[in-house]
Design a binder for these strands. Structure first.
Length: 768
DNA sequence: AAAAAAG
């Protein structure tokens, strides 16, 4: 895996020194950052030369204009025009060149062929660059990248003090002590959380069955699942009695005995359905965890058992494991000739509302008058927060900061845009400030790790934490894929306190022995429920297992649910769970509508919607569609950029940056941008394809309506999808009218207007 | 069926 550079194109760039590779780039010279950009940049001459003899992707258009130079002002000009107007000369030309909707530019395809993966940008010209030799396009990229990296480094210089040793010791103890904590703590947090382990004993067979009933929805099959896990463990499980007591004591958690995930179903009431069942597979995965040092977790013997039983569980997960669990194995209809809508073994899973973890609730009123200092943060950090605009703590912050500082494992759920990054970032910086050596050690191993599902989110988190850390000499670095690892490795070599990144590159560097997670005392999994989904779970587990035994773990997400069970069981023995009270209300600031559109009218409707003024984010289910739509909008004179996994990281950064800086108002993205990404003032979120999961709906919607602003969301669906969409909305507890729409409807021209204004317009439009 | 993350 030690891959060196994922951008093979680099080899073709003029001035390219990649041949000399990482080392030659004057490592150690922080100031050399500048060279980075220069290195790949094409001079005008280079470009011209290229253009003339260019045999690259071939079809470069004579009149092609760099997208960034095009003008799309017309989009806003005609204030709410009903139909797409005609475009100016240039656009006209473009229209001639290709029909919207088509995969224009033949070269795109050609390129795709040789390029192994991805396609860069939708605008042909740009894409070319990324790949082959296409020099020109570089400009954009580099800058973008340059920027990111910059962060990584700038702060480090001063890196004066600090180190892990100090803390190390402490934490270590924690672990050991944790044992005791168990009882007490657990209660607090809930013995329940422990799912399988302790409390569940009784539950064993009987329970399950019982539960089975509820769960039935989700998984009829589940019942069997018991096989290994729980039963076996049974032995371990302690009687519920011993669990909890304390801190939550006051909070009334004692009463919630069984609350474990499994149980949840019962207590909660209808909604909570045991989604977990579906997640059984993961459990198996653990087998691989044998490593888990037996010693550290004396207290948690139980788990060990779990693993044993789960032998097969390898990666595949379900397959290996017992047949029962696999969805495939589920009882199916005898005949599959006719697709069964309701009995699809796969879909149910996505729509199931995972049971919500029980948590301590904190409301805005609870934090009134409280300052960050009251929560345990030092003056420097508090000042840095104030400078960032965070004068006083938000509920989720007030709830989790003290516990994080106290060294507890924490599960935090706060709605989108509620300040979760600071909720875990500030206390981590605070902890790293304490007990550290007088001098910072060059090459010291990081003491904190933050995992995020996307590179953009990791970078965003880094911005926040880097800012906080700078005030107290705590340094961070981003470790993500898509860019050369050189700078990242160099940063690590110099020594950083907090590593923020995505699983792939982190594992890669660990394997290359360029990143040592053994000193990590605090690990955070942001968007935890997503990070514990199938493709992410195992890497995350492997990474967390690399951290110091007994290290503190924090899981955060706006939709934190039982999906994280597997991780909680293994890594958060006695977590404290927090959520913001009444967070559902916050959704009330977002207006939701479902537009029922005939398939053939869809693109026209989307184009009309996107002509509305204001920043608009359009979500699609596939990369190809995101690309196609962005191109369509662009060709129609509506400046738009795309963001998805087929683009090079440079382009991804560039697209996002363009939107953030207001260069472009329309962003067409896949779900890569659904979680965590913050862009100011998104007036409207358009779901060009309806999401499959209610959680996805919530995260996409969460891109708007942030910071107390109103937000609007429209979801475009085909008539046949109404029922399914309604079910999804019900699960998300969102009310949204379903409105039949055809291209040209005035309603489509007022979507970024206040709801009230729209209502009037809607009435004037004959419902389909 | 798709997306993300390593290549």
């Amino acid at each position: 895996m030690a891959r060196n550079d994922q951008r093979p194109q680099g080899a073709h760039r003029p001035n390219d020194r990649s041949g000399s590779r990482p080392g030659s780039r004057s490592p150690g010279h922080r100031g050399h950052r500048e060279e980075q950009p220069g290195k790949n940049r094409w001079s005008r001459d280079d470009r011209d030369r290229r253009d003339q003899g260019g045999q690259q992707g071939g079809s470069r258009r004579p009149n092609w204009t760099p997208p960034e130079e095009r003008k799309h002002d017309d989009r806003r000009a005609p204030a709410f025009r009903t139909r797409g107007g005609h475009q100016g000369g240039r656009d006209q030309q473009r229209d001639d060149r290709l029909h919207r909707g088509e995969r224009p530019r033949g070269f795109d395809r050609a390129r795709d062929d040789h390029r192994g993966r991805g396609t860069d940008d939708r605008r042909g010209g740009e894409r070319r660059f990324d790949r082959d030799d296409r020099p020109q396009r570089s400009f954009g990229d580099r800058d973008a990248r340059g920027g990111d990296r910059r962060f990584d480094r700038d702060d480090r210089p001063q890196r004066s003090f600090g180190d892990r040793d100090a803390r190390g010791g402490d934490r270590r103890f924690d672990r050991d002590d944790r044992p005791q904590r168990s009882f007490g703590d657990r209660d607090a947090r809930g013995g329940d959380r422990r799912f399988d382990r302790d409390d569940r004993p009784q539950r064993s067979f009987g329970d399950r069955d019982a539960r089975g009933g509820d769960r039935r929805f989700d998984r009829d099959d589940r019942p069997q699942r018991s096989f290994g896990d729980r039963d076996a463990r049974g032995g371990d499980r302690r009687p519920q009695g011993d669990r909890r007591d304390d801190r939550f004591g006051d909070r009334r958690r004692d009463d919630r005995p069984q609350r474990s995930f499994d149980d949840r179903g019962n207590r909660g009431g209808g909604e909570r359905r045991f989604d977990r069942d579906e997640r059984p597979q993961r459990r198996f995965d653990r087998d691989e965890r044998p490593q888990r040092r037996s010693d550290d977790r004396t207290e948690r013997p139980q788990r060990r058992f779990d693993r044993d039983e789960r032998p097969q569980r390898s990666s595949g997960g379900r397959d290996s494991r017992g047949g029962e669990r696999r969805f495939d194995d589920r009882p199916r209809r005898d005949s599959t000739y006719y697709p069964a809508k309701d009995a699809n073994p796969f879909t149910p899973k996505e729509d199931v509302v995972l049971e919500r973890l029980e948590a301590q609730s904190t409301s805005a009123a609870d934090v009134e008058g409280i300052s960050f200092g009251d929560l345990g943060l030092g003056d420097s950090i508090s000042a840095a927060l104030a400078a960032m605009g965070a004068e006083s703590p938000f509920p989720i912050q007030a709830a989790t900061i003290p516990d994080v500082i106290a060294g507890r494992d924490v599960l935090g759920r706060g709605r989108t845009g509620s300040g979760k990054t600071i909720a875990f970032g500030a206390p981590i910086v605070e902890l790293l400030t304490r007990n550290r050596p007088d001098r910072r050690e060059i090459g010291r191993a990081p003491r904190a790790l933050i995992l995020a599902p996307t590179r953009e989110l990791a970078q965003q988190i880094n911005h926040v934490i880097m800012t906080l850390g700078r005030s107290v000499g705590v340094f961070t670095t981003v470790i993500v894929g898509g860019v050369k690892q050189d700078r990242q490795v160099e940063g690590l070599r110099r020594g950083v306190d907090i590593v923020i990144g995505t699983p792939g590159r982190i594992e890669d560097l660990v394997e290359q022995r360029k990143l040592n997670l053994g000193s990590v005392e605090i690990a955070v999994v942001d968007e935890a429920d997503h990070m514990t989904e199938l493709g992410f779970l195992e890497p995350v587990q492997r990474i967390l297992r690399q951290t110091r035994p007994g290290s503190q773990k924090l899981l955060f997400s706006a939709t934190l649910d039982a999906e994280v069970q597997t991780i909680v069981k293994e890594f958060l023995p006695e977590p404290s769970v927090h959520e913001v009270a009444g967070e559902e209300q916050s959704t009330s600031t977002i207006d939701h509508q479902v537009l029922v559109v005939d398939r053939y009218d869809k693109d026209a409707v989307l184009e009309q919607i996107v002509r509305n003024p204001g920043r608009i984010v359009v979500f699609t289910r596939t990369r190809a569609y995101a690309e196609r739509l962005a191109e369509q909008f662009d060709d129609a004179g509506i400046a738009a950029v795309s963001l998805h996994g087929d683009l090079t990281q440079a382009k991804r950064n560039r697209s996002l940056d363009k939107v953030k800086r207001g260069k472009v108002d329309v962003l067409v993205a896949t779900d890569v941008a659904a979680r965590g990404i913050h862009i100011d003032d998104i007036a409207l979120v358009v779901q060009a394809d309806p999401p499959d999961e209610y959680k996805t709906y919530m995260h996409r919607s969460g891109r708007t309506g942030r910071a107390g602003n109103d937000g609007r969301v429209v979801t475009v669906i085909a008539p046949a999808r109404r029922k399914r969409t309604q079910q999804l909305l019900d699960r998300a507890e969102i009310e949204a009218p379903m409105i039949p729409v055809v291209p040209g409807d005035d309603l489509l021209d007022t979507l970024t207007m206040p709801p009230s204004g729209r209502a009037a317009a809607a009435e004037a439009v004959p419902a389909s």
